[in-house]
Nucleic acid binder design. Sequence first.
RNA 1: GGUCCUGUGGCCGAGUGGCUAGGCAAAGCUCUGCAAAAGCUUCUACACCAGUUCGAAUCUGGUCGGGACCUCCA
Length: 496
Amino acid sequence: MPLKVYNSYTRQKEIFTPITPGHIGMYVCGPTVSGESHLGHARPYITFDFIYRYLTFKGNKVRYVRNITDAGHFEEEGREAEDKVTKKALLEKLEPMELVQKYTNLFHWAMLQFNCIEPAIEPTATGHIVEQLNMIETIIAAGYAYEVNGSVYFDVKKYAATHDYGKLSGRIIDDLLETTRELDGQEEKRDKADFALWKSAAPEHIMRWKSPWGEGYPGWHIECSAMATKYLGAEFDIHGGGMDLQFPHHESEIAQSTICNHHQPAKYWIHNNMITVNGRKMGKSYNNQIRLTDMFNGTHPLLTQPFAPMTIRFFILQSHYRSPIDFSSEALQASEKALKRLWEAYEVLQKLSVPADQAAGDAEMDEKIVKLVNELEEFMDDDFSTAKVLANMFDLAPIINSIKDGHIPISAVSTATLQLLQNSFKIYLEDILGLKDTTANDNNALDGVMQLLIDIRKEAKSKKDYATSDKIRNQLLSLGIALKDEKDGNMSWNIE
RNA sequence: GGUCCUGUGGCCGAGUGGCUAGGCAAAGCUCUGCAAAAGCUUCUACACCAGUUCGAAUCUGGUCGGGACCUCCA
């Protein structure tokens, strides 16, 4: 079955065909490490993580490149046209690279919490100044950029005369909002639509590099173009990022790369939608961000409790990546419970076993299971519909639990079907959706203690000493350990 | 102002013109010493108005509401 993806560039779902069969180049805009990641940042990285996982599952070798923006984008509208990283560094009295390192480490830690597979290459902007300078020189030589007072700007008007500037973002240059504010550097530009490739650095600016136009630092857009070209070539398969990057960032990347490489950089542009708070995009502009560390700790006025990284991942998976999701503590709570239920069914499933070569005793049930399982790939092939994948899994969960409870006899399903079900749950839940058990316990001592308590409680119950059995169960619960009596007289437990 | 997206049951959210999305919450039942869990059942909606169609949540037009981008932004 062919994979179909929605290409932002053509605004339609297309059959995905890698440029080189079996190999895929994917570039995703990474974080600007001038501050701590918030909930909104989690979405693209989780989204492109399951996309990466799925492409790999489909038998492709994927080179996943995600940059670290550590040079800081100049603030085009800022009074001082200061480098963002530098500005914060001064406030915190840290060396710029010290700050960059701190937030890079924090970012990596958060990605680990979310069970995101690390990219194959994670290039930094500061590590690719040479490549960026080369690219800028090529653009100047081609006549599409000009230098003013040590800064270099891309000539959008000239480019647009012969190229499709605005196609990706659906923009018409003449319709761009007229800004009335006096902006730094604005008067240097020949046209308000022009964007900076290189900015001359003021004397107090710490991050600076030598260039043919004097000391300065690179513009934001050029870094992605330079790194993507270096590691993935003039044309690669996928370029991803948040929808808010379509303009001007990705539009500008297209223009730069097209002039340098004579080619639109990416065959497929994939953009994830935003996470909103009370209907408003989470971000700097609205000052409504919830930092990831606050999510994990529950330390934010909007949170009623801490939320585990897997809960957040599951929350994101429950809606389609191109739909906006509105954050709320209630919605997260629902996700937490749903994930728990699904995961417990999954654990039950892995413990089921049937005799080899058993035929299906209930053909209808057997077929139903096979159908639900086979649809999983169909859904993922349809532009990564993770929400539908989960819906089918929730349809399968009661069947699994019923088999365990005996409401559905184990003889109803064939050996092949049970194995298919077990394998598929593992592949989709763990390998593709990237979920994992967060309550997993690998402490042998605790296991032993729990077994001891369960034995004592069993004994008490058999003597109808309910005072003792209830005491054990209640005390454990107050410690956050839930003990459940099962049908066969056994007891199971898990840490809440 | 320009470009675009969107309005689904108590809440969150899938939705390809005709077929129960799913989750959470709630209620009832079964199981159970009690509880929890689990299973079964119930609650069955598509902002409003008009149109196209045998048939529209799904297409078209309009009205009203919400949002994104046009500035750093995931």
